[in-house]
């Protein structure tokens, strides 16, 4: 079983649109949405939730005003400025380290477990789908990513699926690292803008750092041909294959409004290119399988 992650660095380059179409094209797979704090893939896959789980993670400090003598030691010791001068704890700033509760001489601070979100195992007409919703203003998105990925892996093994398709979050930080860890292939979706190029370079460095094989897709490549050429040169110099160049199409936004994967919405040059990308990805996975 192979794990493929779709990432981008920069947000809004087309990760989820591509992932949904690949979900429609691939056979025998499990899908996971790892963009847990702004998840969108469910809007295209139309899941029916089968199982629902609470995601418990981390703790938040609670202050008992009756026991508190306002000595202020907790305020001095907290590195996250989570306790105000008025001895009110800001749950958003509290990282749950528990130092305040351990040093309080009056036993006035208690640590309470957080319910930081929920996650779901769903049925879709494309196969099993694992997704999540991080609680409002909660942290630990990286941990939630690891939880949904493990669940997807368990399903894939049990049902003998050949691949897991992972829709990744933007950026290069904690949830992204959790989303790419131990994957077999990272597909980086970029766009021919200075921001797209800049962010792609940082993501390429990140996949290199974690030794994940990477390929690049240039989305809306015809919006700036000069920059697309630049991306081609950068990828050539870094020995990274470009597996697709998707043209700009106003139809993409319309397919979102209709809430269907693009390859099912219409058949045009965008559809052709996405199908070709999937064939290349299949080939890469097959090749890896035969080698290992």
């Amino acid at each position: 079983m192979k794990q493929i992650v779709i990432i981008s660095g920069k947000g809004g380059t087309g990760k989820t649109v591509l992932t949904a179409s690949l979900a429609s094209l691939a056979k025998e797979k499990v899908m996971v949405d790892c963009d847990v704090d702004a998840a969108d893939l469910h809007l295209l896959l139309n899941p029916s939730v089968k199982e629902r789980f609470e995601f418990r993670s981390g703790q938040t400090a609670q202050l008992d005003r009756e026991k508190c003598c306002e000595c202020g030691e907790c305020i001095d010791m907290c590195r996250f400025d989570a306790i105000g001068k008025d001895f009110v704890i800001d749950p958003v700033s509290c990282e749950g380290c528990g130092l305040c509760s351990r040093i309080c001489r009056y036993g006035a601070v208690r640590m309470e477990e957080n319910i930081s979100g929920e996650w779901f195992i769903s049925d879709t007409r494309y196969g099993p789908f694992v997704h999540a919703r991080l609680g409002i203003a909660e942290d630990n998105s990286g941990k939630l990513v690891s939880v949904v990925r493990q669940a997807a892996k368990d399903i894939a093994e049990k049902e003998q699926k050949s691949c897991i398709l992972i829709d990744g979050p933007p950026g290069i930080g904690c949830p992204v690292i959790a989303a790419i860890t131990d994957t077999d292939l990272a597909v980086i979706v970029t766009e021919p803008t200075v921001s797209g190029i800049h962010d792609m370079l940082r993501v390429i460095d990140m996949t290199g750092h974690f030794q994940i094989p990477a390929r690049v897709v240039i989305n809306k490549f015809d919006l700036n041909l000069e920059n697309s050429e630049k991306i081609t040169e950068i990828c050539a110099s870094r020995n990274i294959e470009i597996v697709g160049r998707i043209p700009f199409s106003a139809e993409v936004s319309r397919s979102l409004v209709k809430a269907v994967p693009f390859v099912e919405y219409t058949h045009d040059d965008v559809t052709e290119e996405i199908i070709s990308i999937w064939h290349k990805m299949e080939f890469i996975i097959e090749e890896k399988k035969s080698r290992t």
């Binding site: 963009d35 704090d37 958003v92 930080g173």
Partner: peptide
């Protein structure tokens, strides 16, 4: 701000 709704955005 960065995209998303979690800790870096907050």
């Amino acid at each position: 701000a960065p995209p998303g709704t979690s800790c870096p955005v907050i």
